[in-house]
Simulated assay, not measured.
Amino acid sequence: MRFSQVDVFSSEPLRGNPVAVVHDAAGVTDEQMAAFARWTNLSETTFLLPPTTPDADYRLRIWTPGGELPFAGHPTLGSAHAWLGAGGVPAAGAEDVVVQECGAGLVRLRRQDGRLSFLAPPLVRSGPVDDADLRAIARALGIDRADIVDSAWVDNGPGWVGVLLADADAVLALQPDWAAFGGLDIGVVGPHAAGGPADVEVRAFCPGLGITEDPVTGSLNAGLGQWLAGDRLPSSYVAAQGTALQRSGRVHVSLVGPRGTGEVWVGGDTRTTVSGTVDL
């Protein structure tokens, strides 16, 4: 089977988040998918399959070393890049619009100014975080409860809860207590000062998925955009992520339309870094 490994969310080689993509995976079993995801040991490994609906161009299954996800952002962008690079032609006839089928439903992608972006799927859980969870989140992050400026559930499938800190320095200084997570998947965001490398700094902690810290995370940034864009953050902004892991991720988030009812688009650069075949 054809295989691609795509670096996502960085214009610099080897500085984003890689996703392993297996093409033409219709004959691959669940057990083989899970085993290959554990073997690659990347944040996500994906498998391209024929769609089950005429409304989609392909179906995508997304696996972490710990199990399958209904949706994830950087695998969505990287897999679309790989599918197009292998000669995929969108059924709608529009070169710059791709429709992906996955566990979360249909996800629309577009190419604009040479960069792929996806439409943030609806949140499956949103709203305020209760005090007991906030105390647990603070313990897991190794900070005081008072250091949390704001918080919200921003779950579009992986289980994210979003936490806003005072600034980017506070985000980069975090030293999580992994034993205290108790199944939480925590995304943290803080603003950079004017003239900084990006508008905000983001970190994603998800030990329950078999990953302690994810380098650059599309699903989290989609949820954070739905929560913060056009309110505490501008309608369009750039998030830096991966700095603490010596990566240079840049996630482009745009709210199109009114807050609450508009569309949030999440985009980034993609490039194939490894290509060949895989024998499962």
Rank of each mutant, 00 (worst) to 15 (best):
M1V: 10
R2D: 11
S4V: 00
S4D: 14
S4W: 05
V8L: 13
F9T: 03
F9P: 04
S10Q: 04
S10A: 10
S11I: 07
E12Q: 15
G16W: 07
G16C: 09
N17D: 13
N17R: 13
P18M: 11
P18F: 11
A26C: 08
V28W: 01
E31A: 15
M33K: 13
A34R: 14
A37H: 09
W39V: 01
E44C: 11
E44I: 12
T46M: 04
L49Q: 14
P50F: 12
P51T: 00
T52P: 04
P54D: 13
D55Y: 03
D55A: 15
A56H: 03
Y58W: 04
R59Y: 09
G67Y: 07
E68L: 03
E68Y: 03
E68P: 02
P70W: 00
P70S: 07
F71P: 03
A72N: 02
G78I: 09
G78S: 09
S79F: 05
A80D: 05
A82I: 10
W83S: 07
A94I: 01
A94M: 01
E95P: 01
V97M: 05
V99P: 06
V99E: 11
Q100A: 01
E101P: 02
G103R: 08
G103S: 09
L106H: 10
R108F: 00
R108Q: 02
R110D: 10
Q112S: 06
D113F: 06
G114L: 07
P122A: 01
S126L: 01
S126R: 10
G127R: 12
V129H: 13
V129G: 13
D130L: 09
D130Y: 12
D131P: 10
D131R: 15
D133L: 15
L134W: 14
I137Q: 04
I137H: 06
A138K: 08
I143L: 11
V149A: 02
A152K: 00
A152R: 05
W153A: 12
W153M: 02
N156W: 10
P158K: 11
G159C: 08
G159M: 06
W160N: 04
V161R: 10
V161S: 05
G162W: 08
L165Q: 06
A168H: 08
A170H: 07
L172S: 12
L172G: 03
A173P: 04
L174V: 07
W178Y: 15
A179W: 00
A179T: 13
G182C: 02
D185I: 00
V189R: 01
G190L: 05
A193M: 00
A193K: 00
D199N: 08
E201C: 03
G208S: 15
G208I: 04
E213M: 06
T217K: 03
G218R: 12
S219C: 09
G225I: 02
Q226T: 08
A229I: 11
A229D: 14
Y237R: 01
Y237Q: 02
V238S: 05
V238F: 04
A239F: 09
Q241V: 00
G242Q: 00
G242H: 01
T243Q: 10
R247P: 07
R247F: 08
R250F: 03
R250T: 00
V251W: 12
V251A: 12
V251Y: 12
S254N: 09
L255I: 08
T261V: 07
T261E: 14
G262A: 08
V264N: 14
D269E: 15
T270V: 15
T270S: 13
V274I: 15
G276N: 03
T277Q: 14
